[in-house]
């Protein structure tokens, strides 16, 4: 029985160690190596057959050049900063769009709600790539949005939207909307309606009751939704590369280009390490928030 338990624990454990933790070790290692024109394109490589000596020799050759390179070349600085800006702004935009939807769903008649849920989740099951692609045809120079705006007479010459940051924002809000709507809906749906009635009974107007009761009580869902959008957007690659232009700097895109276009593996790895370090803060905050929420629920 104990052997069985050991095997049961060992299989997923070893799998995750091998395919999750060790690869990060390798990323860290390569980020401390030098670029070389070879395959693999970096030195030194750890020569395990040389034993301890090989290891110490390897350690002495490690250098932090790639990280100082990241610090010196303002491309990376700007990429990190603009990723953060885009993530923060698009999280707030998603909140602004998502909250009314979640609020409307929570106030819809009970028999509608499961169907509305399905309607929100359905796009999430369809391909991410296709959802981003759908906007390319709408936002392009001769696209449907421009055709529509010209038809209404609001503008005379087509606007350039595709390949700008605006398109990136639209794409992010669109694709990450379910991540924002669902947690907010979950908290709003649990909200006891008699609290609002009590607030109104005690003299609040409806808008006051919203600000004094609904808004504070929906905070856990809002926080969860914001993290669920912010964290993945920070490392986003598909949206900036399809909807963004050459001026759209996002760290996921930089990493991809360093790797695939410049074939600079050590710098790509260093970018990954820095991105991970930046992500640790929101991830830890998110975990703590979720933990506190679970404890409050119990």
């Amino acid at each position: 029985m104990n052997l069985r338990r050991l095997i049961l624990i060992a299989i997923p454990y070893l799998w995750l160690l091998l395919f999750f933790l060790i690869p990060f070790g390798i990323v860290l290692k390569i980020s401390l190596s030098e670029t070389a024109i070879a395959i693999p394109p970096y030195t030194p490589t750890l020569d395990l057959s040389a034993g301890w000596q090989g290891f110490t020799a390897y350690l002495s050759e490690l250098d932090f050049d790639n990280f100082s390179f990241l610090a010196e070349d303002d491309l990376y600085w700007k990429a990190f900063l603009s990723s953060l800006t885009i993530s923060v702004v698009s999280t707030l935009l998603t909140l602004a769009v998502g909250f009314p939807i979640a609020y409307g769903m929570a106030n819809a008649p009970e028999e509608w709600r499961p169907s509305l849920m399905v309607l929100v989740i359905l796009p999430f099951w369809t391909s991410f790539l296709i959802r981003v692609y759908a906007w390319m045809g709408i936002l392009s120079q001769g696209g449907l949005l421009n055709q529509f705006l010209i038809w209404t007479g609001l503008i005379d010459t087509p606007l350039t939207i595709l390949n700008t940051n605006t398109a990136v924002y639209i794409g992010i809000v669109y694709t990450y909307l379910p991540f924002m709507v669902l947690p907010i809906y979950a908290t709003l749906e649990k909200l006891d309606n008699s609290l609002l009635e009590a607030a109104e009974d005690l003299g609040c107007s409806r808008i006051q009751a919203f600000w004094l009761v609904t808004a504070p009580l929906s905070r856990p869902g809002v926080i969860a939704g914001c993290f669920l959008v912010f964290i993945p957007v920070l490392g986003e690659f598909v949206i900036p590369s399809l909807l963004g232009g050459s001026g759209t700097l996002m760290i996921g895109k930089v990493l991809w280009e360093e790797f695939f276009t410049n074939r600079d593996w050590p710098v790509a790895s260093a970018v990954a390490v820095v991105l991970l370090l930046i992500l640790i803060i929101p991830i830890t905050l998110f975990q703590r928030n979720q933990q506190a929420q679970r404890e409050a629920d119990e």
Binding site: F24, W256, S269, L275, F286
Partner: peptide, 17 residues
């Protein structure tokens, strides 16, 4: 962790492995 890990990092690290 993989739930919140950017795909670019997961992909890169597995390739290197």
């Amino acid at each position: 962790a993989p739930l919140v890990m950017p795909e670019v990092i997961t992909g890169l690290s597995l390739l290197l492995l």
